[in-house]
């Protein structure tokens, strides 16, 4: 039963074209290791260097968004500055393109702002996104975003199509947030 169960789980991932998928508490160390594995895998398959860089960049920005903003965090109660954020990052390929999906819980209070930022980016063409990036680069970061705006613009800049995103309500206080980028 055990092998059958996990074989089915693995085959389900394979059928969806998933190269790897991480779910759970994400740290900077895990981000680094997954990122290295991703680059090695793509390089071994002789993926074009520009594509490798774009996929890696979107992966880093999405993972760091989870580390910064996931509402599902585990903090040390010993007073030490240790905090782990939970979420998922999935990378795969479909129809000759790579896709990178991230998902994490966000507070309902943060949903309108995040939605507004992403909708704004969806409405921009490549030149507008580039100009917006340059404008934000000169801005001092606002208190609550800790650099989120420029991170989302970087993702939009590397994406081959507009970013797809969705929110699924969990309870009155939270949503599951998901973003998909194709390259």
């Amino acid at each position: 039963m055990l092998a059958k169960y996990y074989r089915a789980f693995k085959e389900d991932l394979d059928q969806r074209g998933i190269i790897f998928s991480f779910s759970g508490y994400l740290s900077e160390g895990i981000l680094y290791s997954l990122g290295e594995a991703l680059r090695q895998k793509m390089t071994l398959e002789e993926t074009d260097i520009g594509t490798v860089k774009k996929v890696f960049s979107v992966f880093v920005e999405q993972s760091q968004n989870i580390i910064r903003y996931s509402a599902e965090k585990l903090a040390s109660d010993s007073g030490q500055p240790i905090e782990l954020s939970s979420g998922m990052v999935t990378i795969g390929s479909e129809a000759n393109r790579f896709f990178i999906v991230c998902g994490n819980i966000v507070l309902a209070d943060d949903e309108p702002r995040l939605r507004e930022r992403l909708e704004r980016l969806q409405g921009m063409d490549k030149d507008q996104i580039k100009a917006y990036y340059k404008e934000q680069l000169r801005e001092a970061p606002d208190e609550r975003s800790r650099g989120a705006t420029i991170g989302l613009i970087e993702i939009a800049r590397r994406a081959s199509d507009p970013i797809e995103f969705d929110f699924d309500r969990i309870d009155p206080n939270s949503f599951f947030f998901c973003m998909k980028v194709s390259i």
């Binding site: 890696f56 960049s57 920005e61 680069l137 000169r138 420029i150 970087e154």
Partner: peptide, 12 residues
């Protein structure tokens, strides 16, 4: 060879 968006702000 590569930098993320928050490093881009620091470079600026």
């Amino acid at each position: 060879a590569y930098f993320n968006s928050s490093s881009a702000k620091a470079l600026m």
